[in-house]
């Protein structure tokens, strides 16, 4: 029997999906190791505590709510000190963070403050005796490394999408906590957060990703990709490095070895040849569709369904057919 800790990531006062995944994973780990409690740490501006109930539904028994006017945005040193403080006192067996931009920044700070190591970006995990054993895609996803972490607590980051969010139908207790470091004393300060469109689904959360490459010929033609994504209704728009380097799209949407790694249910590659650097970011997608004029393009070696031809004819037709299919639901 062991208690588990989960960090509940939020942005702009809303929980991120990875928060629910971290809690769900901690719940699974707790249940698999003979029961115990899941404690989630939720940090934010006053009012963030209203999100505790959702964490309960994902499997938390207790939500530690830390509200402070100085914590509306991520504050790496304050968050790390507060998480480390709780983990030091709590006797936790494992501590779950998301392998997100924030979680990847936060977890190593917490681990080193506690004097322990950590495992990164796991797609699967199990507690075996005194060790955590996990699967970690390494070498740009071309190798799956099975890692073994000893020491307690076992800190880990989970790859977004690796765990299904469970509906545990639990009502979590809420405990008010305090930051372990005065936010005004932090050396590293996030002074602003700029969104690239609030309504857009994030690439990590979207069940469908539609990406465009150089085959679109110019930035304005990306509207074909956007229209296709809109037809799906649950899609985010990605891009290749060639395209973000040329300034057609925001760098945060680049999918690949040097960008984002996504694993959606459906990945649609439009005018993308399939450079290794790009494949590294999407090869674990469940279903891959490719549309390209060159039948020998490497993307067709990976694509479950490929269509060879002129994307300027194929994509509008696909958009129309997807819209019809969705309307028929």
């Amino acid at each position: 029997m062991a208690n588990m800790f989960a960090f509940a990531e939020s942005r702009g006062g809303s929980l991120r999906k990875v928060a629910l995944e971290a809690v769900s994973a901690a719940r699974q780990a707790t249940d698999a190791t003979g029961g115990g409690e899941v404690h989630a740490l939720l940090i934010g501006a006053p009012g963030i505590g209203a999100k505790a109930a959702a964490l309960g539904r994902a499997g938390a028994d207790l939500v530690i709510v830390v509200e402070h006017a100085g914590l509306a945005r991520y504050s790496p040193e304050v968050f790390a000190a507060t998480a480390a403080d709780r983990l030091r006192s709590g006797g936790y067996r494992g501590a779950f963070f998301a392998a997100s931009a924030e979680g990847r920044d936060l977890a190593p700070r917490v681990a080193v403050a506690l004097g322990v190591s950590m495992a990164s970006d796991l797609t699967g995990f199990a507690f075996e005796g005194d060790a955590l054993v996990g699967k970690h895609p390494t070498h740009i996803g071309k190798i799956i490394t099975t890692v073994r972490l000893t020491g307690s607590p076992a800190l880990l980051t989970l790859r977004p999408g690796a765990v299904l969010v469970t509906d545990a139908d639990r009502t979590a207790r809420v405990e008010q906590g305090a930051p372990a470091l005065d936010p005004a004393a932090a050396r590293v300060v996030v002074t602003s957060v700029g969104g690239t469109g609030d309504a857009q689904l994030d690439l990590a959360d979207a069940p469908v990703v539609v990406s465009g490459g150089r085959g679109l010929r110019e930035a304005a033609n990306f509207k074909l990709v956007e229209e296709l994504a809109a037809a799906f209704g649950n899609a985010a728009v990605g891009a290749t490095r060639a395209v973000t380097d040329d300034g057609w799209r925001d760098p945060s949407t680049q999918i690949g070895q040097t960008g984002r790694i996504v694993s959606p249910d459906l990945y649609v590659a439009v005018g993308i040849s399939g450079a290794i650097q790009h494949l590294a970011g999407m090869r674990t997608s469940k279903t891959i569709v490719a549309i390209n004029k060159d039948k020998d393009a490497p993307i067709f070696k990976l694509a479950d369904y490929g269509i060879v031809g002129d994307l300027f004819e194929i994509v509008p037709r696909l958009t129309e057919e997807v819209r019809k299919a969705r309307a028929g639901h």
Partner: peptide
């Protein structure tokens, strides 16, 4: 205290399939 137990190649995806040409 973090060590490698083993490494493996990821499971192969089924080979790609071109289902047709054009719209």
């Amino acid at each position: 205290s973090l060590t490698v137990d083993s490494i493996a190649l990821p499971p192969d995806r089924p080979p790609g399939r071109i289902i047709g040409e054009g719209a």
